[in-house]
Amino acid sequence: MRGDRNVFGDPLEPCGTDPLTGFYRDGCCNTGPEDIGQHTVCAMVSREFLAQQQQVGNDLTTPRPEFGFPGLTPGDRWCVCADRWLESYRMGAAAPVVLAATNARALEVIPIEMLREHAVDVPADPGGLDA
């Protein structure tokens, strides 16, 4: 792990290993200067989200082995770009979000309230949701 923090300010939890996600393919939504797209939102992709992304030209279902991308199916956990998630939110197709595995840098693009609306994890201390 790189020491990145989640939206609660805690150490970033893993997002997914099957398929192996993350810009750095380390299972976490870590980010850095090389990550131009800010793959910081840990989403549990839904059929609606995948269809909406394909509609706007971001095909997340077709495998691209040359990029280490297996292609996604509904229910997969994947680090998605903050801008792409926000776009899907505005179009009514936001994927559920795992807040403990969502990088704090996502808050530079997406208000915490929007992420909370679609949270599928509940922290041990719900008071942290007020962050």
Rank of each mutant, 00 (worst) to 15 (best):
M1T: 15
M1H: 13
G3H: 03
D4E: 10
N6W: 04
D10G: 08
D10I: 01
P11F: 07
L12H: 04
E13S: 12
P14R: 01
P14I: 00
G16L: 02
T17N: 13
P19E: 00
T21C: 05
F23K: 01
F23T: 02
Y24N: 04
R25W: 01
R25E: 07
C28D: 00
C29M: 06
N30I: 03
N30K: 02
G37E: 08
T40Q: 08
T40S: 15
V41A: 12
C42A: 14
A43G: 13
V45K: 04
V45P: 04
V45S: 08
S46P: 05
S46R: 10
R47T: 15
L50R: 05
Q52P: 00
V56I: 15
N58P: 00
L60G: 06
P65I: 03
F69M: 03
G71T: 06
L72W: 03
L72T: 05
D76V: 05
C79G: 08
V80L: 10
C81M: 01
C81V: 04
R84Q: 08
W85V: 00
E87G: 14
R90Y: 11
A94R: 04
A94N: 04
P96S: 08
V97R: 02
A100N: 11
T102K: 08
N103Q: 10
V109G: 10
I110Q: 06
P111A: 03
P111K: 03
R116T: 15
A119I: 07
V120C: 15
D121T: 10
D125W: 08
P126V: 07
L129F: 09
D130C: 09
D130I: 08
A131K: 13
